[in-house]
Design a protein around this nucleic acid. Structure first.
Length: 564
DNA sequence: AAAAAAC
């Protein structure tokens, strides 16, 4: 057994411990039965922990916001009541992780408005309507989170904003609330000609996320005649009528859908005052960039305010975003690119495709809290893994990827929200922004392709102060990227086996993986594997084939050094 | 690097 194997066993052992503690945790609630089925939940289950009760959420009812994610974020402290609530909550919740010292809010920019002490303060400070505050309360929002505390006053002061805040910390409300508050009243109610036409646009990278934001908007809009439009092919056709267009207040859309309307001139954005890019780094990715720029250009009103939000914002993208905006303020909650410590993360070595499946089946054979989110790299893999699990009698397996029809996708989301899905197999489409209240576990079946992807994927759990578990499978082919992900684990307080941290620098490892493996004296773990069993060798070759194919090189050519 | 959006 070579070094890599010995060491990776260490990794596996470490993980088994995690599993054990998890099982113990569950057996307390689930009783002594060693049933291989997940804990069953019903609507009337009195013992249902509040965080699992997304039936309530679905009806737009109460949901408790945990405030541990805004720990000690301001000097002008929140009122005693909030503190007391916080304490009570922490005492009640035995799952609560120790609160991080690193959860401060840092701001950068000129004349940063004072942070928001409480939602109630909105009335006096910004003349926010009682109706809106009531809706807020009805949704169960009690105290602002860090990003809300700072972001809301900044947006209400009419400033441009770049907000970086971890997954599940309430970014959506941080921009929807100011939009409603500053639009004051629906266009349909106003006699003012200047108020006619779309005044706010929210962009999101996926339909599902756009839909979710739309639902959040509807909750805040309760009782008033706001026209909020979730853009789709169907709604786009109704825009031919200018009177219809003029009565719209807020549009929520994916970029291309909106661009199509601009092109066909069935939509004007020249009265837009608020443009929000949710998942901004994704929207400023090369594939979206041109579309977003087109939309940005169409928002020609001189009072346009732009805000970008994400849990991750790489430096280059941030610079681009900052240049789009005027005198922007930047806020960062916690440490950039660091997930919440509420998410217990682990890495699991799986040698081959078949042992990946086996590992997952084993995991599903033990009691777990459904639903579980399982990420894979491609649409076909999502489909076939779902089939495979069904064949292995795993109950309530579900699947969602962008290759499915609109209806299929909507149904899958509904099943997820209703708690009918226990194991949801999905792709990157679900990685960002989606908020399913009960998700306590995420499995990266296929290794994420970037640190950003990793952070967003695991961020589907550990939301709004709840704890979660994220398990990431890795194979030999993932070795070059393993260390960068491992660094994320370390930074957010999850343990990493020491051998992983001793791996060579990613770039170096990548080059080795790409064709330098024939060097017999190479003792690097990654290189040694290929000398071992044939299956691994095949995997490795497949990996480097893929890499080389991208560069348009012959498979046998040694492009390792040349490409860097 | 690759799947993500939508037509």
């Amino acid at each position: 057994m070579d070094a890599f194997h010995a060491l990776s066993l260490g990794g596996a052992k470490f993980n088994k411990k995690r599993f054990q503690s998890q099982v113990q945790l569950f057996s307390g609630k689930a009783g002594e039965s060693s049933s291989s089925r997940p804990l069953k939940r019903t609507k009337d289950d009195a013992e249902l922990p509040p965080e699992l009760d997304f039936f309530k959420y679905d009806k737009g009812g109460k949901q408790t916001r945990a405030d541990s994610d805004k720990e000690e974020s301001s000097d002008n402290e929140s009122d005693d009541e909030a503190r007391a609530t916080k304490k009570r909550k922490l005492n009640d919740d035995k799952d609560a992780a120790p609160t991080p010292a690193s959860h401060r809010v840092t701001t950068k920019g000129q004349d940063v408005p004072q942070s928001l002490v409480s939602f109630a303060a909105l009335k006096d400070r910004f003349d926010v309507s009682s109706r809106l505050l009531q809706n807020l309360a009805d949704c169960g929002y009690k105290t602002p989170t860090g990003v809300q505390e700072y972001g809301i006053p900044i947006l209400l002061a009419g400033r441009d904003l770049a907000a970086i805040s971890p997954t599940g910390t309430g970014k959506t409300l941080a921009y929807t609330l100011p939009i409603f508050a500053s639009l004051k009243s629906p266009a349909s109610r106003s006699q003012d000609i200047a108020a006619a036409g779309v005044r706010a646009v929210i962009l999101a990278p996926t339909r599902e996320l756009a839909g979710q934001i739309y639902n959040e908007c509807l909750k805040l809009a309760q009782g008033r005649k706001w026209r909020i439009v979730l853009f789709s092919k169907a709604t786009a056709t109704t825009l031919a009528d200018k009177d219809v267009r003029d009565k719209i207040d807020i549009i929520i859309s994916t970029p291309l859908r909106l661009v199509a309307c601009l092109k066909s001139e069935t939509l004007e954005l020249d009265n837009v005052r608020h443009l929000v890019l949710d998942e901004a780094d994704r929207l400023l990715d090369t594939e979206f960039l041109e579309q977003v720029q087109e939309i940005f250009a169409a928002c020609s009103h001189k009072e346009l305010r732009t805000a970008v939000f994400s849990a991750t914002l790489p430096a280059g993208v941030e610079e681009m975003a900052m240049q789009m905006m005027r005198n922007p303020i930047r806020i960062v909650v916690g440490l950039k690119d660091t997930p919440l410590p509420l998410i217990a993360q682990s890495l699991v070595y799986v040698s081959s495709e078949s042992s990946k499946l086996l590992t997952l089946l084993q995991h599903l054979g033990q009691p777990y809290v459904p639903p579980l989110l399982v990420f894979v790299s491609t649409q076909p893999r999502a489909g076939s893994l779902a089939e495979e699990l069904v064949l292995h009698d795993v109950p309530n397996v579900d699947c969602l990827h962008a290759g499915m029809s609109k209806k299929e996708r909507e149904d899958a989301v509904t099943r997820m929200r209703n708690g009918e899905s226990w194991v949801m197999i999905t792709t990157e489409v679900m990685a960002r922004g989606m908020d399913f209240k009960g998700v306590r576990g995420v499995i990266n079946y296929d290794f994420p392709q970037s640190v950003q992807s990793y952070i967003h994927r695991i961020g589907r759990t550990g939301r709004a102060g709840q704890t979660g578990t994220a398990i990431t499978y890795f194979t030999d082919a993932d070795a070059p990227y393993l260390k960068s992900i491992a660094n994320v684990l370390l930074q957010s307080g999850s343990p990493v086996p020491e051998w992983i941290m001793k791996l060579p620098k990613p770039s170096k490892m990548k080059r080795r993986m790409m064709g330098k493996v024939k060097r017999g004296d190479d003792v690097s773990p990654a290189a040694r594997i290929t000398k071992g069993d044939t299956k691994k060798r095949r995997d490795m070759i497949a990996g480097s084939k893929r890499r080389k194919a991208r560069e348009g090189e012959a498979v046998d050519a040694d492009v390792g050094e040349a490409s860097s």
